[in-house]
């Protein structure tokens, strides 16, 4: 699926300032950026450059301090006004899938239950059909009844990816998705992301230190000291 010019995320002069006593830390310092539908964007930069904070802001997991953020034509934050928590939750359900470095699988639930976990909170049609499709695509269909502790790191991350995609999100956000994996498993995840972007048309935004993964993205955005380079 090719990238079109329809904007899915628009940010203007976005800032995130943390206050530690008298010190003000500008984690994200006035970034203006658009992400188009179907785009595959990688945020790169040194540690502390603000990549992860920016990703959290884009994913509506955190509130900016200043600026504006619009996602899928809905104003999430503008002029110090933020969407209420209920609407933010609905937005997350509808638009986003999240993949984290530490997987965050629930250890007491099986692979299948972990993948279907979002549907403990809301209903969606074809959940099982989608789960079957995803597990086959990600090569974990034979592991459905296993507990996370019985899986390898690569398998755990694939389960986390399946869980992130189970609600058919328009945007997949991934924070260091290969950070805990060896090079072989990293390559597998990289391939999966490319496939999801090209075949399923999912907009992917990821944060990585992994050059191979970053190079596989269509667009690389470099940050330093909270600003675009």
């Amino acid at each position: 699926m090719s990238v079109n010019n329809e904007k899915i995320i628009e940010i203007k002069d976005l800032k995130k300032i943390y206050v530690r006593g008298s010190e003000h830390i500008h984690a994200v310092d006035g970034i203006t950026l658009d992400v188009n539908k179907g785009e595959y964007v990688a945020f790169v930069g040194p540690s502390g450059s603000g990549k992860t904070t920016l990703l959290h802001l884009l994913g509506c997991l955190d509130n900016p301090t200043e600026g504006s953020l619009m996602v899928a034509d809905r104003m999430v934050y503008c002029e110090n006004k933020c969407m209420n928590e209920r609407d933010l939750t609905k937005l997350r359900r509808e638009l986003f899938g999240y993949v984290f470095q530490k997987f965050y699988l629930i250890p007491t639930l099986t692979v299948e239950e972990n993948i279907l976990l979002p549907f403990a909170f809301y209903q969606k049609e074809d959940a099982h059909k989608n789960a079957k499709h995803l597990t086959e695509m990600l090569g974990i269909a034979h592991r459905l009844s296993h507990l996370p502790k019985e899986l390898s790191g690569g398998e755990m991350q694939r389960v986390a990816v399946a869980r992130a995609l189970i609600n058919r999100p328009k945007i997949l956000l991934a924070d260091e998705p290969t950070g805990n994996l060896d090079s072989k498993r990293s390559a597998e995840i990289s391939g999966i992301f490319q496939q999801l972007n090209k075949e399923e048309g999912i907009t992917i935004i990821l944060v990585t230190h992994n050059h191979h993964l970053a190079e596989s993205a269509g667009k690389m955005v470099e940050l330093k000291d909270g600003k675009l380079v």
């Binding site: 994913g59 928590e85 939750t89 984290f100 976990l117 979002p118 909170f121």
Partner: peptide, 9 residues
Amino acid sequence: IMKSMGAMT
């Protein structure tokens, strides 16, 4: 994480 996946309060 559950809240990020759509769990309400």
